[in-house]
């Protein structure tokens, strides 16, 4: 996991690849992640938004943990995933 600089997050440089939806993570290869304990081949642009799109989760209804670090909603848009990242995508369920 890397954290983008503010100008990258604003989409001023191609590193963020924010508008790319092709099977291209900018490195021309699949990135291996672990998502909710399972191996996951990431083909998106390495942002959390593209990963959530891949796994079919509504960004507003999940909380994200990467390598045991809680990703705040403020930080979520500036995180770039790295090979081998351990990502937990969590949601609310019934509990007492």
């Amino acid at each position: 996991m890397m954290v983008m600089k503010s100008w990258e997050a604003a989409g001023l440089l191609p590193l963020s690849r924010q508008n790319r939806t092709t099977n291209d993570n900018g490195y021309g290869k699949i990135m291996k992640l672990v998502v909710n304990g399972e191996p996951h081949n990431h083909r998106g642009n390495r942002t959390i938004a593209s990963l959530l799109d891949e796994v079919g989760a509504d960004p507003k209804r999940v909380a994200i943990l990467i390598n045991d670090e809680v990703i705040s909603s403020i930080k979520r848009d500036v995180v770039i995933l790295s090979e081998g990242d351990n990502v937990e995508v969590l949601t609310f369920v019934g509990g007492g």
Binding site: N36, G37, V55, G56, V89, L90, T91, F92, V93, G94
Partner: peptide, 21 residues
């Protein structure tokens, strides 16, 4: 009301309580 956190499961989206609550 209390709620618990669990791993998101694409096959069991109906478990998600955030929307209804």
């Amino acid at each position: 009301v209390t709620v618990a956190l669990r791993r998101f499961n694409r096959e069991r989206k109906s478990d998600d309580l955030y929307g209804p609550l």
